[in-house]
Nucleic acid binder design. Structure first.
Lengths: 189, 189
DNA sequence: CAGCTTCTTGACAGTCACTGCCGTTTGACA
DNA sequence: TGTCAAACGGCAGTGACTGTCAAGAAGCTG
């Protein structure tokens, strides 16, 4: 039952931090303020999160659903498999969490340090996707065709993530799905 | 001729910094050490570079050559235009500078903070490329097909950049060109 | 050449993220 | 209830960065 308390503390820190970031901005909020709002000491803050950035980025969302991707039938192309995996994963996300997700994404996009870290995650997911595609096709992960496919797919994902707020509907998942469909059917321009 | 001295100071800082990073690592090198090696005060360091990271990233290389891209004939497809622009730009890069570039890239890839910032530049270049493609095709930069194309192209660039050291030849430009060729002819996997 | 201005620099003090240590408290468990 | 490890707060220290101020160097003017 120690676990329970730790989970509650962690959630409290994240909640208070995001509230303060919303109210007074990321850069104007100190770790000390977050700790005070969450009723812990600054030392304890760093026991729960390695950096101030992590409070926003941790659990932001998994680069993408590895298991759901692996579960797709072998007959599906890599892009089709990913589209299905994304849809089935995000379909069951509660509307409330989705809204929180969007707000957090907006914060990340607007703060350069956070955005850079987020893009680093996208970058790592190129590697991850390359390995999954390699599994699926029997090729090697460092095969240039595999690498190109993984890069293009994640690149489309990044572009969708960037433009999420501008568009109607402002939905990352929908934008990504549309982009992947275009990528699959060939880029005609 | 004040300009001349400033340029020399700036080059000295960058040179000493990269030397120290090579010898003892990025994280183990302080700005104070860099300043001492370049025979300036720490204050002056920050007058030339806004952050320690900037000493590595500034002038690392332009996301890509805007002018060369614009100069391509309207008959070329966006991907073809970019391939030609990249080739003509990098063809005339002296071998010595290319080697320095590769070393700097290796440093950036190996240090998370630097890598994240670099990827943020790639991310911004999606926006830039989308605008250039919009010019070229008469579509809008927020058109979803334009955005997808820009994302896929830069994604292939990121993937090439990541795998640059692993492959033979370890040449970013060649890997990018190959990836774009694959993207252009359709991703068959 | 002398005087004025402007640019550049170094010194200093201060903030804040983050690290490491140490003594105390607290909760689990015998 | 006593014991032990986990969790905590406090504190000192480092290092990146900011802002300010006064001294020195470089350029221009009369």
């Amino acid at each position: 039952m120690r676990e329970r308390k730790k989970a509650r503390t962690r959630a409290a820190i994240q909640e208070q931090a995001l509230r303060l970031f919303r109210e007074q901005g990321y850069g104007n909020t100190t770790v000390e303020q977050i700790a005070a709002a969450a009723e812990i000491s600054p030392s304890t803050f760093f026991r729960y999160f390695p950096t101030k950035e992590a409070v926003v980025l941790d659990d932001a969302f998994d680069p993408f659903p590895v298991e759901a991707f692996r579960a797709q039938p072998a007959s599906a192309s890599p892009i089709q498999a990913l589209r299905h995996a994304m849809r089935s994963t995000f379909a069951q996300l509660p509307a409330e969490e989705a809204a929180a997700q969007r707000e957090r994404d907006a914060l990340i996009r607007s703060v350069p340090e956070l955005r850079a870290r987020m893009l680093d995650r996208f970058g790592r997911s190129i590697q991850l996707l390359a390995e999954l595609v390699a599994e699926r096709t029997g090729r090697r992960a460092d095969d240039s065709a595999v690498r190109t496919l993984a890069g293009a797919v994640i690149g489309v994902g990044i572009a969708a993530w960037f433009s999420a707020p501008d568009q109607s509907p402002p939905d990352f998942v929908a934008a990504l799905d549309e982009g992947l469909a275009q990528l699959e059917s060939g880029l005609r321009l």
